[in-house]
């Protein structure tokens, strides 16, 4: 209520602030604190040696991680933590040591330049053994009915069939997660196609939609990539785009060619690579084929096994494949 005394709360807050700052300083220790060298708070709890792996959102990456985790845990006695991070932020996390390794990278020249050659906080971990390829796909039954659809020049003919409520009256080209490498908008424009790029926003949404279309027997055109387990469920055929040549995709505004075939690579945090002991050695040697990866992916995505169960099954059946990784 009305009060004769002026109050001065700010003085008190100043004191509180000071106390809080002091407490913070006391808690963290004085001096510099480099947050690029802090590991995850969940790591190495209960004294176990912990490896933190990044899982990207697609199932192939989950398969890599699942098998690597299983072997690290059951053969080498580590505890494995996994974190799902998108590709570009994963590089940053890897550089900071919050993640120890990325097992499947689709090529990020800019990040490679910055972290591997510039800061040297990330070390290449060799190839995964799988070659990745991005492209435009239509359902195989559709390609069989209309063989000419597999050439990009004829896509306009089928725009009507590809129309959806979201495609603004044009044919729909469905793209997936914004985190994936894509030139599709520029491609559609530069090739002068009667298509509208519709972003599903996440791979999960895209897969759900593809499966739904397949069930409905509705033709569709989608951005997709290999290796991918979905091909086993929904057979798809690639549409030929103008051939890829070295440097044809360098200017993202003018690109008018297909996507390259990329050997997928592994990357390790430099400190982990140097002092990570057996785990680091194992991850560097981890190397398998597209078929082997798909086998695990399929168990996870379609049979709905947990990644651990899928990994266990695969490891039991393929001892000869993984034994050499451990040496």
């Amino acid at each position: 209520m009305r009060d004769a005394h002026p109050r001065r709360p700010l003085g008190r807050h100043g004191a509180t602030l000071l106390a809080a700052t002091t407490a913070l300083a006391a808690l963290t220790g004085c001096g510099a604190a480099d947050m690029t060298r802090q590991s995850s708070p969940y790591a190495a709890a209960q004294g176990a040696k912990t490896v933190t792996l990044s899982v990207q959102s697609w199932v192939g990456a989950q398969a890599n991680t699942a098998v690597a985790s299983y072997l690290l845990e059951h053969e080498l006695g580590y505890r494995v933590d996994t974190v799902q991070v998108d590709e570009v932020p994963a590089w940053d996390a890897l550089s900071q040591g919050r993640v120890d390794a990325i097992l499947e990278d689709w090529g990020h020249p800019e990040q490679e330049e910055r972290y591997v050659r510039g800061k040297k906080t990330i070390t290449p971990g060799g190839e995964l053994g799988v070659t990745g390829h991005i492209g435009w796909f239509v359902p195989t039954w559709f390609a069989e009915e209309h063989p000419d659809v597999t050439d990009w020049k004829n896509l306009d003919k089928y725009a009507d069939l590809l129309r959806t409520p979201e495609s603004r009256g044009k044919g729909q080209l469905m793209d997936g997660s914004p985190s994936y490498v894509t030139n599709d908008k520029a491609l559609v424009k530069n090739l002068g196609l009667d298509l509208e790029v519709v972003f599903a926003g996440s791979e999960a949404a895209q897969i759900t939609q593809i499966k739904q279309f397949a069930k409905e027997h509705k033709p569709f055109l989608t951005y997709w990539y290999e290796p991918q387990w979905l091909f086993q469920r929904v057979p798809m055929t690639e549409v030929k785009l103008p051939e890829y040549t070295e440097g044809c995709a360098d200017d993202p505004q003018k690109v008018a060619c297909a996507y390259p075939h990329t050997p997928l690579r592994k990357y390790l945090n430099t400190r982990f690579a140097e002092s990570g002991g057996k785990a680091a050695g194992f991850l560097k040697k981890f190397h398998w084929t597209k078929e082997q990866q798909n086998e695990v992916s399929l168990m996870i995505a379609e049979e709905k096994l947990s990644p651990q169960q899928a990994a266990k099954k695969w490891v039991e059946r393929n001892e000869n494949v993984w034994k050499p990784w451990l040496t």
């Binding site: 480099d34 947050m35 995850s40």
Partner: peptide, 14 residues
Amino acid sequence: FLYFFGHISNAVVV
């Protein structure tokens, strides 16, 4: 970052 955000980050992790 070293003297401010770093400490905050550190305190959170700890």
